[in-house]
Design a protein around this nucleic acid. Structure first.
Lengths: 198, 198
DNA sequence: CATCAACGATACGATACAGTATCGTTCTAC
DNA sequence: GTAGAACGATACTGTATCGTATCGTTGATG
């Protein structure tokens, strides 16, 4: 539920360099052939960093894998409540589409959902990510209530799913390039159901 | 694209029995701890069927894994075009929600997307499944065109994603029990954007 | 420039897993 | 009831992988 801690940035440039190389290599492998191919030996070889160094930075393979997911997790932007309900929601969902249309994250996403069953830390990560998104959308929907366009007892999960689901599916079926179109369509439908002065 | 062949049903009841036991065990393990836990030894032990028997039915671990996915893949129902556009689409999407709200399939789904990168056969399976759904929805949307509610040059992928995405997300975030609500909300929004006599 | 931490290379042990092979047993089908 | 297929049990090989240990080298920092 809380915020997931990020380790303090290391002083020695060597550790930052090898850490970055290892994370990059692990990400590449994850994207190309899936989580089970992210082995310590494979990551070490591709990164050009020794295996012993890897174990100086992560205590296990799974810790590295989780870190790959956490590192690439997109940050949610602050809602632009000053724009008013409709524009703010459009802006926020469109921003989400931008993040999900990043081809890297789009190919990490399936692994995130699948690894949820295997590693509790990944489940926490997914839940945290989702709740962050939810919270930001909720503040916008509350503005919608104030503007009289959303019923006060609205169901945030329901609306969140309706708006974000299409974009997520877009990424999962490897059509990330159409994320913005899809987001636009979902928004149009949503606002058709919740018209001004409703 | 084409139809994926199903092997002819075996005559000997023994092979049907051991096949079923192995598939059931593999499914359980897949659901509980993910694809990488579906090992030959684990499946054999849990099913109570000998490993040698497993290899008499599948030529490799991955063949078994793919078969688990294929076996549980929901069938798409025939569109009820006689109901008219709106009722037919509602019926079809609601049916999809029923299938995706099956807790088993809901927990297999993430594995399906993740294994896409690793096994081409899984990618084919996913694509085939999606195109089946798409085809059935398209016939209904074509009816919508005839009824003057959908523009003739409509984008089937776009609309499909808008309608199915929310349900799929529902399954992925382990809220399968709310699939019907979500489907209903997505449909309401969709029809608000495409009102009668448009 | 001297110290010491980080690194590279590599070997190693332990284990898990895929897939093969063998052989005696059981059950189906005719 | 009998022939043959399916099955169970188990041992075995080879390999992949995780994680540890060692030690000489490099490079950052004071």
């Amino acid at each position: 539920m809380g915020t997931l801690p990020t380790p303090a940035p290391p002083c020695d440039p060597r550790v930052a360099r090898s850490r970055a190389k290892l994370l990059a290599a692990a990400t590449e492998i994850l994207i190309e052939t899936g989580p089970s191919s992210v082995t310590v030996d494979a990551v070490a070889e591709r990164s050009g960093v020794a295996k012993s160094t890897l174990y100086r930075h992560w205590e296990s393979r799974s810790a590295l894998l989780v870190d790959v997911l956490r590192t690439h997790r997109p940050e949610v932007s602050e809602p632009r409540l000053d724009l008013g309900f409709e524009a703010a929601l459009r802006q926020q969902i469109d921003h989400l589409a931008t993040q999900l249309s990043d081809p890297e994250w789009g190919r990490i996403l399936p692994a995130l959902f699948a690894l949820t069953q295997q590693f509790p830390e990944v489940a926490d990560l997914e839940e945290c990510d989702r709740e962050e998104k939810m919270a930001s959308v909720r503040t916008i929907l509350d503005l919608g209530v104030a503007e009289g366009r959303i019923a006060p007892g609205y169901d945030p999960t329901l609306m969140m799913t309706t708006l974000v689901g299409p974009i997520m599916m877009c990424a999962l079926i490897r059509q990330s390039d159409r994320a913005h179109e899809v987001a636009h369509a979902a928004l149009d439908a949503f606002f058709a159901l919740h018209p001004p002065r409703g």
